[in-house]
Amino acid sequence: MNKIKELFKIQYPIIQGGMIWASGWKLASAVSNAGGLGLIGAGSMYPEVLREHIQKCKKATQRPFGVNIPMLYPDLDQIINIILEENVKIVFTSAGNPKTYTAFLKEKGVTVVHVVSSLKFALKAQDAGVDAVVVEGFEAGGHNGRDETTTLTLIPMVRGQVHIPVIAAGGIATGAAMYAVMALGADGVQIGSRFVASEEASSHDLFKQKIVAAKEGDTQLTLKELAPVRLLKNKFYQDVQELYGRGTTVDELKELLGRGRAKKGMFEGDLVEGELEIGQVSGLIHDIKPVSEIVENLVSSFQETKERMYQIEI
């Protein structure tokens, strides 16, 4: 039995990342209905907006779904209370200390998963008592690690030293990539960028088209002094690079970033001044599809890869 399927009671060991400005109730419920685990991204929601999305997701799917909470955001106590009041039983935490809420949530019967970008933090998450870890290589979009360790390097490192289930993330948009990371020891996958380019994602259509148009080298990991993010290269990205070229300070980076920069780009569709967070794998995404087709393609190409690998001899 697959550990991730068993842990979440889902059909396929495929988790949808809780990406900000993309992961509303429509995306989460569609992924859950397709056999994976959908996550509502709380990072871009005020507490009562999150409640609304949870309630709508409950009506749209009878299958398990969860909430992703970036722990560097405000209103954490309110968000946790809403999750408990709405009886959500799966929580993914990220961008913070897993000890903060893990024990409390588990006492309330919640399954807790923490997102990490290094072996060191995977071990800390395990010590904190989480039920599984998402291990994310630096290919990923959004909030990222500072060490630039790739997914194919990180997964076997973590697998060799933790005993809890491991979910691979970063650079996974195909069934072949899913097969590769599971061959290296992952029990399942978390996929973000491929689901951003779906019909059900709440991100702006212009941003989705920008993802489809992206090619190799069109993204870059930056802003490590604040919170590392992988961005599509646009005017805002170039403005950031100009600051670095002059020998910038943290305060100057904060001033340039300002407030609502990610919302402006990914939700409102400002491709010039907005922050456009996406993974390297955007170079492999060539269309915008319904979630059901994306999941179906992942599963079928995984099986095709599995059959092909059986025929290879060394």
Rank of each mutant, 00 (worst) to 15 (best):
I4S: 01
K5S: 13
E6W: 04
F8P: 13
I14Q: 03
I15K: 04
G17N: 07
G18M: 10
M19F: 07
S23D: 01
S23E: 03
G24R: 03
L27G: 05
S32G: 15
S32T: 14
N33M: 09
G38Y: 00
G38W: 00
A42P: 03
A42F: 05
G43L: 05
S44K: 08
M45D: 04
P47Y: 03
E48F: 09
E52G: 13
C57W: 00
C57T: 13
K58S: 09
K59C: 01
T61Q: 10
N68L: 08
N68Y: 05
I69P: 00
M71R: 07
P74Y: 08
I80M: 13
I83P: 06
L84W: 06
E85F: 04
V88E: 12
G96W: 02
P98Y: 08
K99R: 13
T100C: 10
T100W: 11
T102H: 09
L105C: 04
K108Q: 15
G109Q: 06
G109M: 07
V112Y: 12
S117P: 12
S117C: 15
K120E: 07
A122G: 07
A122I: 04
K124D: 08
A125G: 02
D127L: 14
G129P: 05
V130D: 01
V134F: 07
E136W: 06
G137P: 04
E139C: 10
E139A: 09
A140S: 15
A140W: 03
N144T: 05
R146D: 14
D147M: 14
T149H: 07
T150Y: 07
T151K: 10
L152F: 14
T153F: 00
I155D: 08
P156Q: 05
V158Q: 02
H163Q: 12
P165R: 07
V166K: 00
V166E: 01
I167V: 15
G171W: 02
I172G: 10
A176G: 12
A180L: 02
M182F: 03
M182S: 06
L184S: 05
L184P: 03
G185T: 06
A186K: 06
V189A: 08
I191F: 04
F195Q: 09
S198Q: 04
E199C: 11
E200N: 02
S202H: 03
F207G: 06
Q209A: 14
K210W: 07
I211A: 11
I211K: 09
V212R: 07
A213F: 01
A214F: 04
K215H: 09
E225T: 06
P228G: 04
V229F: 08
K235W: 03
D239L: 11
Q241A: 15
Y244A: 02
G247P: 10
V250N: 02
V250C: 01
D251P: 01
K254G: 08
G258F: 09
R259K: 15
R259E: 15
G260P: 10
R261K: 15
E268F: 05
G269H: 07
D270M: 12
L271I: 13
L271Q: 09
E273A: 10
E273M: 10
E277V: 06
E277T: 11
Q280R: 02
S282M: 03
I285A: 10
S292P: 06
E293H: 03
E293Y: 01
I294S: 07
V295D: 04
E296T: 14
K306N: 12
K306F: 12
